[in-house]
Computed example of a mutant assay.
Amino acid sequence: MPYVLVQIVEGRSAEAKKAIAADITASLVEHAGARAEDCYVVFRDVAASDWLIAGETVAERRRKRGDAGT
């Protein structure tokens, strides 16, 4: 029973997460021989202020770029 935890910066829509989960599930079925009904994909949204890259938050990086990107 595969369990995949996807930690991602908040802001993705429910539709985007569903599409991501479908792709992950399909890959587990194809490459790991898992049954789709046994695959668990869990999303953990992380605030942009709590995700840092080289000591800078994603929120700060977005402000510098002038966007609310994902």
Rank of each mutant, 00 (worst) to 15 (best):
F43R: 05
K18C: 09
P2L: 08
A26V: 01
R44I: 13
Y3Q: 09
V58I: 11
G69A: 14
P2I: 11
S27H: 07
E37K: 11
I8H: 01
K18T: 15
R44E: 09
A19R: 13
V4L: 10
V29Y: 03
Y3K: 00
I8M: 11
L28F: 14
V42Q: 14
G55A: 09
M1T: 11
Y3G: 01
R12T: 04
I20V: 13
I53V: 15
D67G: 10
S13R: 12
V4F: 09
D50T: 03
T70L: 12
E37S: 07
A22F: 00
L28K: 08
V46T: 15
A54W: 02
F43L: 04
D67T: 12
Y40C: 13
A68D: 13
Y3W: 11
W51V: 06
V46P: 05
A21M: 10
I20G: 01
A34L: 04
Y40V: 07
A16Q: 15
S27C: 10
A48I: 00
T70A: 12
W51E: 01
E10Y: 03
G11M: 08
A68H: 04
A19P: 06
S13G: 12
I20Q: 04
V9D: 03
F43G: 04
L5A: 13
E56C: 10
I24C: 01
R61N: 03
Y3T: 14
A47S: 13
E10I: 05
R65L: 15
A59Y: 07
T57G: 05
R44W: 06
A68V: 05
Y3R: 13
P2F: 03
E30M: 01
V6K: 00
G69Y: 06
V9Q: 00
T25G: 08
R12C: 05
R12A: 06
D23F: 00
V41K: 06
A16S: 10
F43T: 03
V29T: 05
R62F: 02
A36F: 00
T70F: 08
E60R: 02
A21V: 08
R35L: 09
G55V: 02
P2N: 13
K17V: 03
E30K: 14
R62M: 11
E60N: 10
D45I: 08
